Simulated scan of single mutants.
Amino acid sequence: MTDAAQVRQAVSAVADPELRRPLGELDMVREVSVDGDVARVAIALTIVGCPAADRIERDVRGAAASVPGIDAVEVEVGVMTPDERAALVARIRGPRRSAFDADSLTRVIAVTSGKGGVGKSTLTANLAVALAGRGLAVGLIDADVHGFSIPALLGLVDADGRPPQPTRLDDLMLPPVAFGVKAISIGMFLPPDAPAAVAWRGPMLHRTISQFLTDVHFGDLDVLLIDMPPGTGDVAISVGQLLPHAEVLVVTTPQTAAAEVAVRSGLVARQTGQRVIGVIENMAAFTLPDGSVLDLFGSGGGAAVAASLSTDAITAVPLLGSVPLSPALRTGGDTGVPVVVGAPSDSAATAIGLVADALIAGRRSLAGRSLPVRPD
């Protein structure tokens, strides 16, 4: 005879697709009983109308049915009480408000540029997906509040171009996931019938970035990428204040005029205590079908930015990659399928992959840092 404990063990191992933790760990499995070859399982979802309800019920049914001797499964779906949900949120959040404090093991990388139109957001989205594809746990914050584009670049939009709203557990928000990347953007909070535009000044911008860092549950991340707005304005200053330990990637094009402006974003990052770890040159020369090379935006901009930001041998800033102009890269941005997934053999995808490999190879050392562990 099949024991109810066997069914409970199987069902408890099912993961909540949003919280990414087993149902048993989340105290979502309630009564489990077995009557002959019929298993009855009661589970409690976190909220009413949970968007993952159908998937959870399906996975629970499948897990119970996989137990030898079970031929039929009945699933009863309920909802946690407010007190149970509050206790769960407190356990998930942990003792600290932010998971990205200076002693966190999460590597925070802000991707910035001096001016708009250099493809910074496209590179950030593809870099996030490339890192996730290499087995890292990756989060992505769209800090370009006025010009948010990350949801569309990751395909997190409906037929009308509207991003999904994050699931809320009280004051905790669960970011949507695309291509293995947990992403959050102000575009996910705009009312469906409102214009897709944000007109905010400094205090609102600062509050938004702060809430993204404290109220969004990314879980344990290896890397958190931040898609910064162009320039050196309010958001750059806020991120510098909130995350002074963050590392910075500077994006430029080969054009001399763009390179000169890009240097400024790196200098401002240093003024707030952040460290510039590299430069990415986008829209570089590409090879035409006849074999000729077209330097549409000139050449040398990336190397020039890296040289300008390299003050000495200790603070040398490398040119991590040069990403060529690519129709596939542009198409991937329009369709919401990043080129590193949709056309991995494309020259742009290859170049972005090399940047991802360089970032992994250059990860921060743990030497001299306190780790969040304690004796049992």
Score class of each variant (00 low, 15 high):
V339P: 03
T272I: 07
D160H: 15
V276F: 01
A4I: 14
V129L: 01
D234C: 08
R20M: 00
I186E: 04
D334A: 08
P175W: 02
D170W: 00
T287F: 11
P229R: 06
T46N: 02
L329N: 00
P324I: 03
S308L: 02
Q274T: 01
A316I: 01
T112K: 09
T335W: 02
G161E: 08
R30A: 14
S322H: 08
G332A: 05
S113R: 11
A63D: 05
I141K: 06
D142R: 09
R55C: 00
V341C: 03
V337T: 12
D103S: 15
A285Y: 03
E25A: 09
G301R: 09
L354N: 12
A349Y: 12
I141T: 02
H245S: 02
I184C: 10
I47S: 03
G69F: 10
A110H: 09
M80P: 02
P244C: 00
V89W: 08
R270Y: 01
G332M: 03
D71V: 14
D334L: 03
R369D: 02
I70V: 15
I43C: 07
V339Y: 00
L221N: 04
I237A: 09
A42R: 14
T122I: 06
A284N: 09
T81M: 06
E74R: 14
D357Q: 12
S113M: 13
M204I: 09
A137W: 01
A306N: 13
G116Q: 06
A44V: 10
P375L: 06
V67Y: 09
P176N: 11
D35L: 14
L205W: 03
A269F: 13
G36W: 14
A306T: 10
R264H: 11
I209S: 02
G300C: 06
L123R: 06
A183Y: 04
A52F: 15
V14G: 05
G291P: 09
V216A: 03
T208K: 00
E281I: 14
G114N: 08
P82S: 09
T331S: 12
G362A: 15
G336E: 08
P372T: 07
G114Q: 07
D312Y: 13
A246R: 07
S265Q: 12
L371H: 02
Q274H: 05
A306L: 12
P22M: 09
G155N: 04
D312P: 01
G266D: 06
I360V: 15
E25R: 04
G362W: 04
D160C: 13
E74A: 13
V263W: 10
L190D: 03
I70S: 06
V77K: 08
L140P: 03
L319D: 04
H217S: 02
